[in-house]
């Protein structure tokens, strides 16, 4: 069973880092030992989404330059003690790491973790190459808009070219708006899956909860009341090989009548 995943997209701002943080938390909540690697050197954000930005001592650059071992650079999560982050440096560039460096680092971390998830930078250059170098599976994330889908397609092509088998590339669609899909104003999950010819492992709705979670440095998965956290848990289960139908995400995405009433009262309170 594969345990090294890279989350990538091509286009920036589609939710890679949010997915990595929540997926890591979901797997750690299930009892797995998880290591998240921020490969977005120079534009790091994963530490911020996880609320760990003040705990960083060493970064991946220190590991590459042999100042410390990978285990020494890891930052433990405040709540989930089995969730670790290998942070990126902000004052370095992606060119300071090579795909060989990434392979070496992941090879060293591999025996100590159940899952390793790499947060890829946007783009298809050196940073992307570093991020995919040691990955066994790729999760491509896209929003339902044309520029994002088109970039995802380009990335899938590059992954295939780099040796990824078709079944090792999975798709997550982020920021779905069920009402727009219903009105015929947004591409459906079937349209996108058909165009990209990859299997969908998650459908994440466009919600305010994600913004609030990022503001607080607390991924939504760590707040049990959030509807959307179920979706990340579903994605984690699918990656672990558990048979969770994709329709389970659609149910959450649509929201129940009770949720609508709840939201209405929440809104009036203000």
């Amino acid at each position: 069973m594969e345990k090294v995943f890279v989350v990538t997209s091509g286009k920036g701002g589609v939710g890679k880092t949010t997915l990595v943080a929540n997926l890591g938390c979901a797997l750690a909540k299930m009892g797995d030992k998880v290591c998240l690697i921020d490969a977005d050197v120079g534009l790091k954000n994963l530490d911020v989404v996880l609320g760990l930005e003040n705990r960083i001592i060493y970064t991946i650059i220190d590991v590459v330059n042999n100042r410390v071992k990978p285990e020494e650079a890891l930052v433990k999560h405040k709540i989930l003690k089995n969730l670790h982050l290998l942070p990126a440096s902000q004052i370095a560039t992606k060119e300071m790491i090579s795909p060989e460096d990434m392979k070496r680092i992941i090879h060293q971390l591999y025996p100590n973790f159940d899952y390793i998830i790499i947060d890829s930078p946007a783009g298809i250059e050196r940073g992307f190459r570093n991020a995919i170098a040691a990955a066994e599976q790729a999760i491509v994330i896209t929003t339902p808009e044309l520029p994002s889908i088109s970039d995802a397609d380009r990335v899938i092509g590059l992954l295939e070219n780099a040796g990824f088998e078709a079944q090792s590339v999975k798709l997550v669609i982020n920021r779905i708006k069920p009402k727009m899909v219903k009105r015929g104003e947004m591409l459906t999950k079937e349209d996108i899956a058909e165009a990209l010819a990859v299997n969908i492992v998650g459908l994440i709705p466009d919600t305010d909860e994600m913004v609030v979670a990022t503001n607080r440095g607390m991924p939504v998965v760590l707040n049990g009341n959030q509807n959307v956290s179920v979706i990340f848990e579903n994605i984690a289960k699918r990656l672990k090989g558990q048979p969770v139908p994709i329709e389970a995400d659609t149910i959450v995405t649509g929201g129940s009548f009770l949720d609508m009433i709840r939201k209405l009262f929440k809104g009036s309170r203000g």
Partner: peptide
């Protein structure tokens, strides 16, 4: 949606 599908 139809337009987006054709363009895609």
């Amino acid at each position: 949606r139809t337009e987006a599908k054709e363009r895609l």
